[in-house]
Amino acid sequence: KLETFPLDVLVNTAAEDLPRGVDPSRKENHLSDEDFKAVFGMTRSAFANLPLWKQQNLKKEKGLF
């Protein structure tokens, strides 16, 4: 399991300012399950079932792209 970080560490943070080991294209993977659901309004599995373009739009909207 990946290390999780608080939302404010990941949202609207440039790649070079992210904690070590965080993939800038997969910031959402480093949210706790609770934060993930609070941000996206759905579970990880529901998010994973969305088309890629919709996932990317949601990530942009939430500052996690």
Rank of each mutant, 00 (worst) to 15 (best):
F36V: 00
F40C: 01
G41P: 00
L7P: 06
L18F: 07
W53D: 11
K54A: 13
T13A: 13
T43V: 08
Q55W: 00
G63Y: 05
V9G: 04
L31W: 02
D35S: 05
Q55P: 00
F65A: 15
D17C: 15
S45N: 14
K59V: 07
L2F: 15
L31F: 02
L52H: 10
L58Q: 02
D35H: 04
W53Y: 09
L31H: 01
V39G: 00
M42Q: 02
K60Y: 12
A14L: 11
L58R: 02
E61C: 11
E28Y: 02
K62I: 07
K59L: 10
Q56M: 13
D23I: 06
F40E: 00
W53K: 07
F47C: 00
S45M: 12
W53F: 09
F65Q: 13
S32M: 03
L31P: 01
R44D: 01
E61V: 09
Q55D: 00
K27H: 04
A38K: 11
S32E: 04
K1V: 14
V9F: 15
N57A: 14
T4F: 15
D35Y: 01
W53E: 13
F65H: 15
A15I: 15
D8E: 14
A38G: 08
Q56K: 10
L18G: 05
N29C: 12
L2M: 11
R44I: 04
N49R: 11
P19W: 02
V39E: 02
A14K: 15
N29R: 13
G41K: 08
F65T: 14
R44A: 05
E34A: 12
N12G: 10
D17A: 10
R20V: 15
Q56W: 09
S32I: 03
N49C: 15
K54S: 11
A38P: 00
K54C: 14
L31R: 01
F36C: 00
D33L: 05
W53Q: 10
E3C: 13
L7T: 05
F5A: 03
S32P: 01
H30G: 04
E16L: 07
G21I: 08
L50N: 00
V39F: 06
N12D: 09
P6Y: 02
L7G: 03
F40L: 08
S32C: 06
N29P: 03
E61R: 08
G63M: 05
A46G: 07
E28N: 02
L10F: 04
L7S: 03
L50M: 09
E16A: 12
T43Y: 03
N57D: 15
S45C: 14
K37G: 08
M42T: 02
Q56V: 14
E16R: 10
P51L: 01
E3D: 11
A15K: 12
G21R: 05
E16M: 07
E34S: 11
